[in-house]
């Protein structure tokens, strides 16, 4: 147990980071029935903004800048690449999402010259070391799950208690009737992208505290795993995405702890296939009646 403890801590931390990304997938899917393939790249861009801005700006300025710019990026992607396809077949939307993903990676390639950008100034305090029950780890390991759960609670409050949140839930079931209530569909969709991208940016800040550099493909693996987490939990469900993310994060790290590091990624993707075969609606998913 003592030997596994650091892995369990890492697993909870990775789970929190996956959760923050997977909420973005699940929210967008809930409202547009779209798997937003560009979401992992939005996560990567947040990392790049952090590297560039923290090189010259103090953290109390660069961190808010990362959050705001990433949220704006999510908004712009939706307006430019998805909104014009509102009445197009869903397949066109998916293809547009793939296009956005590669476009972002290529723009990042142009910006970085293709070189991984070192995180020379990790965020202070959270990157400091602490000792938990004899295991030594970065503070971010403990901060991540707490911050994640706090943000999830805020998000649940937002969708249950606020006007725009109820509008979001209504639109996720029935666009036309939501419009008849006076809900502005385009505002609700933009809001969804802003929230999803903001959470991915928080995830990114935490994630790159543990990683030495940001490469243009840095978003691919965490993005894919967060996507698996969303499917595992039942895509469209916020609690599902969170539970799925923590389970995947923990499983991966425990597998590493048992000495099978080589197979930890394979496990996640094998899990995806098994879920799709056995229970396609995931742990908390609604019935597939009105879906693809």
């Amino acid at each position: 147990m003592q030997k596994l403890l650091p892995y369990i801590l890492n697993g909870i931390s990775a789970g929190g980071q996956y959760a923050l990304i997977s909420i973005g997938y699940t929210l967008v899917y809930g409202i547009l029935r779209l798997i937003n393939f560009a979401h992992g790249d939005v996560f990567m861009v947040a990392g790049l903004i952090l590297v560039y801005s923290s090189a010259t700006l103090p953290f109390y300025f660069s961190i808010p800048l990362v959050l705001v710019c990433t949220a704006v990026l999510g908004f712009v992607i939706e307006r430019a690449a998805y909104k014009p396809l509102r009445s197009a077949p869903r397949m066109s939307l998916m293809i547009s999402a793939i296009g956005v993903s590669y476009l972002i990676q290529n723009l990042a390639f142009y910006l970085t010259g293709g070189l991984p950008q070192p995180v020379t100034r990790p965020i202070p305090w959270v990157s400091g070391m602490v000792t938990v029950l004899g295991a030594s780890t970065k503070r971010v390991t403990l901060v991540t799950p707490v911050l994640t759960l706090a943000l999830v609670l805020v998000l649940l409050w937002l969708t249950r208690r606020t006007r725009i949140g109820i509008g979001m839930r209504a639109a996720s079931r029935d666009f036309e009737t939501a419009q008849l209530m006076g809900v502005k569909i385009n505002s609700v969709i933009s809001f969804t992208f802003v929230v999803g991208s903001f959470l991915a940016a928080v995830g990114s800040l935490l994630y790159f505290t543990n990683y030495p550099n940001v490469a243009i493909t840095s978003g691919a693996m965490p993005g894919l795993k967060a996507f698996v987490a969303a499917v595992f939990g039942g895509i469209g469900s916020i609690p599902g995405a969170v539970v799925g993310a923590f389970l995947i994060g923990l499983s991966e790290e425990i597998i590493k702890g048992l000495g099978y590091s080589t197979f930890s990624d394979a496990f996640t993707f094998a899990l995806l296939i098994v879920i799709l075969c056995v229970k396609p609606t995931g742990l908390f998913g609604e019935s597939a009646a009105d879906k693809v």
Binding site: R163, I166, A170, R173, D174, L180, V183
Partner: peptide
């Protein structure tokens, strides 16, 4: 407009359905 087939929001409570009627 009260749409054909009622189209209440099945995932919202009765009260939330009424609340969204007053959305604007």
């Amino acid at each position: 407009l009260v749409p054909e087939g009622r189209r209440v929001f099945p995932n919202l409570t009765v009260k939330e359905n009424l609340r969204i009627g007053a959305y604007l």
